Computed example of a mutant assay.
Amino acid sequence: MSNYSALALLLCPMTVVAIAGEDAADITAALSRAGENRPQIEEALRRSADDQREGMQFLVAHMPQRDLQSLSAEFLLENVELAYQAWRAATWKQRVPREIFLNHVLPYCSINERRDNWRKDFHTRFRKRVQNSKTISQATAILNQTIFREFNVRFSTKRPKADQSPYETITAGLASCTGLSVLLVDACRAVGIPARVVGTPLWSDNSGNHSWVEVWDQGWHFTGAAEPAGEQLDRAWFSGRAATAQRDQRMHAIYAVSYKRTPLSFPLVWDTSIDYVYAVNVSDRYTQTAQQLAAGMISVSFRLIDEQRRQRLAAELRIRDTTGKPALSGTTKDERFDPNDHLTFHLKQGQSYDLDLRWSGQRLSKRITPEKEGVVYTFRRRELQPIPKKP
């Protein structure tokens, strides 16, 4: 029986719900984990509007078990409807890709916080405040400058707990950097701004942990929650510390939360037993400080993808100039890293290079001549050939 047929029967013998092929198996598995709350999840899937069904299916497919077993159909239906309304009404809607909307506007949660029904309230409070903003960055700065004063909330180590929900923070008037970040993320999402919690379990100098916020404005940009730098993003007191992150050291790396399931979990220092908060490793974007490229040099990125599994692969890449002289080497990014984070080198514009890409006993040799700044060379697993064994 196909995934589609199985799911249609699981939902209701009288109602057929169209399910995207890539989500069908995950939704079937999610329903089996919902326990006694399964009728609520099925109802949410059945009743979602046609133009919002993809979003509901996405939420269910990647939903933590605690939510599958507790959230009501009404909670989910209202959340999805309001998320689509805010996104479609935003002046920047056309600049927000579908996958960014699904993973960073639509979700009702960030980490393991209590599941509050914040979206309608926050949309009503803040939509007029940002309706004349021309960019997401401008709207984010306005929210960061105003919402904490409005709620009379400030940072304090005396907050009730680290992982507060937005209304727990508003009630307490005090929050950790994580609680402040959750509140700002929810305010952003309520008006159609893609936002996510970012943080490190421990700075590389062992001075403590920290959380902050990233928003999508044709690329990810960061800001400290309740720590606005005027109208500027990508400026914060912690920039220097973030630049020393250690990507391959779990406790010293920087992670961004992903509602969509990934191979990594976000290291929650207040409860290390939780593994259902997914993440991508974004350390490289903070450690690769901006630098002025020499004349004639451009940034060129590389990735290897497995089209069947719809994922990126970590492959060893060596680059030589056409004389055979070694130039650069590195490892392409896999699904542990942000989808927009690629292995990047600075190469001479218009000069030819020979590439040697190796993954799991296979290789690809290719000559490139990069001409355009920011180009991403995409290689596919099916293009690789077995490496001949030495006699």
Score class of each variant (00 low, 15 high):
Ala6Gly: 10
Ala8Met: 11
Asp23Asn: 14
Ala24Lys: 00
Ala25Val: 11
Gly35Arg: 04
Glu42Gly: 10
Gln52Asp: 08
Gln57Pro: 03
Phe58Arg: 02
Phe58Asp: 05
Ala73Met: 07
Val80Met: 02
Ala86Leu: 00
Gln94Arg: 15
Gln94Ala: 15
Arg95Cys: 14
Pro97Cys: 04
Tyr108Thr: 03
Arg114Gly: 05
Asp116Gln: 06
Phe122Pro: 03
Arg125Pro: 06
Asn132Arg: 11
Thr140Asp: 05
Leu143Glu: 00
Arg149Val: 10
Asp163Ala: 12
Thr178Asp: 09
Ala187Asn: 00
Ala190Trp: 04
Arg196Tyr: 01
Val198Glu: 00
Val198His: 01
Asp205Thr: 07
Gly219Ala: 09
Phe222Tyr: 14
Glu231Ala: 13
Gln249Ala: 14
Gln249Tyr: 11
Thr262Trp: 03
Pro267Trp: 02
Trp270Cys: 12
Val277His: 04
Ser283Arg: 02
Gly296Val: 08
Leu304Ala: 02
Asp306Trp: 10
Arg318Phe: 13
Arg318Thr: 15
Pro326Leu: 10
Ala327Asn: 04
Thr331Asn: 09
Arg336Thr: 13
Arg336His: 13
Asp338Glu: 06
Asp341Met: 08
Ser352Glu: 14
Tyr353Asp: 01
Leu357His: 04
Trp359Val: 01
Arg363Cys: 08
Lys366Leu: 13
Arg367Thr: 13
Arg367Tyr: 10
Thr369Met: 14
Gly374Glu: 06
Val376Gly: 07
Thr378Asn: 14
Gln385Asp: 12
Pro391Met: 03
